[in-house]
Computed example of a mutant assay.
Amino acid sequence: MEQGRSGRERGRDETPEERADRLWVELLQELRVAQTGVQVLFGFLLTVAFQARFAGLSDTDRDIYTVTILLGAATTGALIGPVSIHRLLTGRRLKPETVQWASRLTLVGLFLLLCTMASSLLLILRLVVDDALALLLVAAMVVWFVICWVALPLWAHATNPPGK
């Protein structure tokens, strides 16, 4: 293990199982944040079809709404999926693999969340501004999410190599 400036070893001295346990707890904390947002968004989307103004939506807006609802459901499934994976594999001595699979499913869920957010924004902004501006605003927000969720972590990873 590499030593830091203080002369002490950096990093953790943990077994693969201990590391998997720690990573699992960290993943659950991350999922709690994402799941709460998805549940609020999806719950709101489910109520839209019951609003009086829904009947006046164009066919295009109804199609966007349908895609948005399906994306919201897929996002919910992906972000709750790690709990099911963990529950079904508990006791099988697959914790490191479980963490890896759950982590991958979480990344899929975050991608689906990005798509759900973009679709939701498009649906709402088409009702507020003209179509061209709606598309431009949605594209700008997608870029913002990609900066926050992908570019910044990748930049931090690239500029802070392990053991630094």
Rank of each mutant, 00 (worst) to 15 (best):
M1W: 03
M1K: 10
M1S: 11
E2F: 14
E2G: 12
Q3P: 01
R5D: 14
S6P: 02
S6L: 05
S6Q: 09
E9N: 13
E9R: 15
R10W: 07
G11D: 13
G11W: 12
R12S: 09
R12V: 12
D13F: 13
T15K: 06
T15I: 07
E17R: 08
E17C: 03
E18L: 09
E18H: 09
R19G: 06
R22P: 05
R22Y: 11
L23Q: 14
W24L: 15
V25P: 04
V25Y: 10
V25R: 15
L28H: 07
Q29Y: 08
E30Q: 10
R32G: 12
R32H: 15
A34D: 07
Q35Y: 00
Q35M: 05
G37M: 06
G37P: 03
G37W: 05
V38F: 02
Q39T: 07
V40A: 06
F42I: 00
G43D: 00
F44N: 05
L45Q: 12
L46E: 00
L46C: 02
T47L: 14
V48E: 09
A49F: 11
Q51W: 08
A52P: 15
A52G: 09
R53V: 13
F54N: 07
A55S: 15
D61R: 11
R62H: 10
D63F: 06
Y65N: 04
Y65R: 06
L70R: 03
A73N: 04
T75G: 00
T75A: 00
A78R: 02
L79Q: 06
P82H: 09
I85K: 02
R87P: 07
L89R: 14
G91D: 08
G91C: 11
R92E: 14
R92S: 13
R93T: 12
R93C: 06
R93N: 15
K95V: 09
Q100N: 12
Q100Y: 07
R104G: 11
R104P: 01
L105Q: 05
L107F: 10
V108E: 03
V108G: 03
G109I: 03
G109A: 08
L110T: 06
L110A: 12
F111V: 00
L112Q: 01
L112M: 03
L114V: 11
L114M: 11
L114Q: 05
C115Y: 01
C115F: 07
C115S: 10
M117H: 00
S119T: 01
S120A: 12
L122D: 04
L122F: 15
L123K: 03
L123M: 13
I124P: 01
I124H: 07
L125Y: 09
L127P: 01
L127S: 12
L127Y: 03
L127R: 10
L127A: 13
V128F: 01
V128G: 02
V129C: 05
V129F: 04
D130H: 10
D131V: 12
D131K: 05
A132N: 11
L133V: 11
L135N: 08
L137D: 02
L137P: 02
V138C: 01
A139H: 08
A139D: 10
M141L: 12
M141H: 10
V142A: 04
V146Y: 08
V146M: 08
I147R: 00
I147Q: 00
C148T: 12
W149C: 02
A151R: 04
L152T: 09
L152R: 05
L154D: 05
L154Q: 08
L154I: 14
L154G: 04
A156I: 09
A158V: 06
A158K: 08
N160Q: 09
P161Q: 13
P162D: 08
K164W: 06
K164E: 10
